[in-house]
Simulated scan of single mutants.
Amino acid sequence: MQILVCIKQVPDMESKFKVNADGTWYEGTDLAWRMNEYDEYAVEQAVQLKEQVGAADVTVLSIGPERVKEALKKALAMGADRAVQLIDDFAYQKDPFQIASVIAAFAREKKFDLIFTGMQSQDRGSGQVGVLIAEMLSIPSITTIVDFSFSEGQIVAKRELEGGIKSIVKTKVPALVTCQLGLNTPRYPTLPNIMKAKRKELLSISISELLKVEGKQETAKMYFPEKKGGGLVLEGDVGDLADQLIKILDEKIGVLAR
């Protein structure tokens, strides 16, 4: 069984962000980097499936500059068999359609049985890449899964929907699933597994070999929201609150209580 896991390296969300000089993305220097949280669930589920079926091979893939190798090495230490870096120092300028196109181009000839991705990335948060990959490969996808099982070539997954509703979805492989918080608890790489990961294959490929499409979207501007004044808390009985509110609105816009 051939399994692919797509991961992204993102800044730690506790980092202090600055908008870059172009005003289109955040400045990458002086940030702490980590594997995207949702992708950790994807790696863990792939490794669990490998342990379940035995005869399985897990490839983990990431697009980005040299630093993404650290996230790939963590995935190898978690139990993936090999890693692939698609080299791109300007991955942040690629829209979800381009990113998905590159991954689909890599995966198409490999004929993976199952592809795991995170539900979304913590920095861009588009939630589009996984389903776009599936569409480009003409395979079914199941999104935002919080439970996963596999037997005799069939996936049974539980999806989390809005309003606390959950649904059960079944499909045959090949397929793609996107992973949500609550699916599992990602394992912590042990020292022996970290040492083993150093001997595993980590292949680097230029993204130019796979990128054949133009972008569909372009980031025009990125900026921090303007700071707003503090709110006003009203206290008292309902009748008094109504009178206070009318008085405030009258002072602000001068059209009420006339």
Rank of each mutant, 00 (worst) to 15 (best):
88 D>Y: 10
76 L>E: 08
110 K>G: 15
91 A>I: 07
96 P>W: 05
103 I>P: 04
105 A>T: 14
81 D>Q: 07
84 V>Y: 03
89 D>W: 10
73 K>F: 09
87 I>R: 13
70 E>H: 12
75 A>P: 01
70 E>W: 06
93 Q>H: 10
92 Y>T: 15
109 E>N: 14
68 V>F: 08
69 K>F: 03
103 I>W: 13
72 L>H: 02
111 K>Q: 15
94 K>A: 13
102 V>D: 01
70 E>G: 06
111 K>G: 07
83 A>W: 03
69 K>G: 09
88 D>V: 09
92 Y>P: 00
98 Q>A: 13
105 A>I: 01
70 E>N: 13
108 R>F: 11
74 K>M: 09
76 L>P: 06
95 D>L: 09
105 A>R: 15
104 A>T: 11
75 A>G: 03
67 R>S: 14
76 L>G: 02
96 P>T: 09
95 D>H: 09
82 R>Y: 07
82 R>T: 11
111 K>H: 14
76 L>W: 02
81 D>M: 10
90 F>G: 08
73 K>I: 03
106 F>M: 08
106 F>T: 00
105 A>F: 02
67 R>W: 01
70 E>F: 10
80 A>H: 04
73 K>N: 12
109 E>Y: 06
81 D>W: 07
98 Q>P: 00
74 K>R: 15
99 I>P: 05
102 V>K: 03
99 I>K: 05
103 I>M: 15
80 A>G: 04
90 F>V: 13
92 Y>Q: 12
75 A>M: 02
81 D>N: 14
109 E>Q: 15
102 V>T: 11
82 R>D: 08
99 I>F: 05
86 L>F: 11
85 Q>P: 02
98 Q>G: 10
103 I>A: 00
79 G>A: 06
78 M>Y: 05
85 Q>R: 14
91 A>Q: 10
85 Q>K: 13
88 D>T: 12
70 E>I: 12
73 K>D: 07
80 A>V: 05
93 Q>N: 11
78 M>N: 02
76 L>A: 05
111 K>P: 03
106 F>A: 01
99 I>V: 15
85 Q>V: 08
102 V>M: 12
97 F>L: 11
73 K>M: 13
69 K>I: 08
68 V>Q: 03
101 S>I: 04
72 L>T: 04
82 R>V: 05
107 A>V: 09
85 Q>F: 06
96 P>H: 06
105 A>W: 01
75 A>C: 12
84 V>N: 02
